[in-house]
Design a protein around this nucleic acid. Structure first.
Length: 198
DNA sequence: AGCGGGATTTTCT
DNA sequence: GAAAATCCCGCTT
């Protein structure tokens, strides 16, 4: 298979189903370049899959002004606003026309922790151990809905080699339907995971 | 450590 | 008008 310039090979895996892609996004790096040129980086340690066959998904009832990005092409950012004050971000996955995305629930900070502390007014685990915390720490809001993750100021970096951390699969958090669908994935031993199963 | 409630506003019915 | 892919605080064990 030959790749043209528009489709970077490292993003090919994003065209698969959400529940297949979600564990594969663990270990990928989220990179944010702020307006002053400083760089934040975090390693994704917890994700959840959502797709249009799934009653818990924003895409379940079809495309709306809010969710149309989920029906677009893979490798873009879907940012939504919830509970009157929080943003959460997802990686759009699957083929164009199919509404699917993977929620980034937690990252482990790698670079720019001091900058994250300023926006979070917290430190340590509370910097990035939850989906809205990640967005606040990384200064991601509605402006970046639909952003192409190949390009600054927000990039998804896929490592050449994956780590060997143990991945746990569990039901998703904070939803009122499809409570048993086990589409949450996280690194078992990682401190930044939002909620451990024990 | 775990539970319960409040904050706050967008989104769709 | 109701619900929402959450977070934080305060109170109870």
């Amino acid at each position: 298979m030959v790749h043209n310039k528009k489709t970077h090979p490292s993003f090919d895996f994003l065209s698969d189903t959400a529940s297949t892609v979600a564990p594969l996004l663990l270990g990928c790096i989220l990179e944010r370049t702020l307006e002053d040129g400083s760089v934040l980086r975090g390693r994704i340690v917890e994700t959840e899959a959502y797709d249009q066959t799934d009653t818990a998904s924003h895409s379940y009832k079809g495309s709306t002004p809010r969710t149309e990005i989920m029906f677009g092409s893979a490798g873009h950012l879907y940012v939504y606003f919830t509970y009157g004050m929080h943003y959460c971000c997802n990686v759009v996955v699957g083929p164009p026309g199919y509404g699917a995305a993977v929620l980034i629930r937690a990252v482990e900070p790698l670079e720019g922790e001091d900058s994250m502390k300023l926006r979070r007014s917290r430190h340590g685990l509370n910097l990035t151990n939850g989906p809205a915390k990640v967005c606040q720490a990384f200064a991601i809001d509605k402006r970046f809905n639909g952003h192409n993750l190949h390009t600054p100021p927000i990039r998804l970096i896929v490592p050449e080699k994956r780590g060997d951390s143990t991945i746990v699969q569990s039901p998703r958090i904070g939803i009122s339907t499809a409570k048993n669908t086990p589409w949450r994935f996280y690194y078992q031993d990682n401190k930044y995971v939002s909620k451990n199963n024990s």
